[in-house]
Computed example of a mutant assay.
Amino acid sequence: MEDKTIRLQLSETKKEKPNSDQLIFGRAFTDHMFVMDYSDPLGWHNASIVPYQPLMIDPSSMIFHYGQSVFEGLKAFRTEDGDVQLFRPEKNLERLNRSSDRLCIPPIDEEFGLKAIKQLVAMDKDWVPDADGTSLYIRPFIISTEPYLGVAPSRNYKFIVILSPVGAYYKEGINPVKIAVENKYVRAVKGGTGEAKTGGNYAASLKAQEDVAKGGFAQVLWLDGVEQKYIEEVGSMNVFFKINGEVVTPKLNGSILAGITRDSVIELLKHWNIPVSERRISMDELYQAHQEGLLEEAFGSGTAAVISPIAQLSWEGKDMVINGGKTGEVSQKVYDTITGIQYGKLEDPFNWIEKVEAKSAVKQ
């Protein structure tokens, strides 16, 4: 993309900000958004920060018919001294481009994408809440916009970034949850779109989640789509198990999303000299470990919750209560460390933090 400038159009009316103790995930949105267009032969162009507003899109736009879209999710955090900072944002942009490649969407310039996100967050810095556990959720996404009903990659796209202040995921401490092992529906298969962050993956997962919720379960544990025996993800999170002192997580195999929190957990465990491995793990192995008293902890990892401890797994009529239904020591330590780094309460030996400078809002 030749033009690296970001045009600014300030909102003439400011929205009323919700109270920090009344934030609901993904319901309130800030004053501005970032928009950039793609077309042949111009490439990515017309980068702008504009007032948050509805999109004008042709009903025949290909996004509505063939689902060619990708998205990301990351957060901005306010520190005790008032600074605003991001957590490993370059990884989100790298993954966005990997997802785009799978969906035949042209890549964005990752350095420019990060510049746009930082400038947008800086402009709406006052929207970053300061109550414990709150943050500003950042949603970059790309949609296909060519008005055409033929099945082919679109020739037009929009890259958009919107912001939403969100409350603490755990208001009263980490809450271990009950999970049902899914044995009917399939999340993804190798060669499909499981390793891409695309909307269709999430739409396909809703039915299973809806079904298990009727039984009082928070989410499903997904198994592989071929043999239905190897563990892949829990809900929309990566999953970890502590078995006889070693932490195990499913190896990336082409159908599992490469989580940024997942990668951070693995780096932390290695830093602490806690044995950790990425490999295939079956439900049979997990159940055997539980029967022998060796399944010590289980937790999901992702942007929204950071860590979500698993209190119980239900599989083929058998209930596996883990660590007495309580949060494990490693789970708690990982959660406390990552959130401590995110909010600037702990040192960052990994260079994971990217500061957002307020002055970037006026740069041209």
Rank of each mutant, 00 (worst) to 15 (best):
Q219Y: 04
G215K: 05
A213E: 09
G235Q: 03
S236C: 14
E227S: 12
V212Q: 10
E267L: 01
W272M: 02
G225A: 12
G199K: 02
E267C: 07
K207H: 10
W272G: 04
T193G: 10
V226G: 09
G215H: 14
G245F: 00
K270I: 12
Q209Y: 11
I231T: 04
A213C: 14
K242Y: 11
Y230M: 10
G254D: 07
W272D: 06
I266R: 01
V239C: 02
T193D: 00
F217M: 07
E210A: 10
A258N: 13
G259Y: 00
K270M: 08
K207E: 05
S255Y: 13
D224A: 02
V234M: 13
I260E: 05
G200T: 02
E233I: 02
Y230N: 09
L221Q: 14
L269Q: 13
S255V: 14
E195R: 02
E227A: 15
E227C: 09
A196T: 07
S236E: 11
G194V: 03
I243T: 08
E210Y: 15
G245S: 06
W272H: 04
F217K: 01
E210Q: 12
L206M: 10
Y230C: 08
K197Q: 12
V234E: 04
H271E: 06
S255P: 05
Q219A: 12
I266H: 08
V212L: 10
T193M: 13
S205W: 01
V248A: 07
L223M: 06
P250H: 05
G192Y: 01
G194P: 00
L223P: 05
G194S: 09
V265N: 08
A204E: 04
D211A: 15
T198K: 00
E227V: 10
G216Y: 00
V248I: 14
G216R: 01
Y202H: 12
G192W: 03
E233C: 08
K229S: 10
I231D: 03
Y230H: 13
I256F: 08
E232M: 13
K229W: 11
E233H: 11
A208D: 07
N238S: 06
I260A: 07
D211M: 10
V248Y: 05
S255Q: 11
L252I: 15
L252D: 08
I256R: 00
Y202A: 09
Q228S: 12
A218Y: 11
V247D: 02
V234C: 13
K197I: 13
E267I: 04
A208E: 08
G194H: 10
T261F: 07
D211C: 04
V239Y: 04
D224Y: 14
V220Y: 06
Q219L: 09
N253A: 11
G199Q: 01
I231W: 07
A196R: 00
S264Q: 03
W222I: 00
S236V: 15
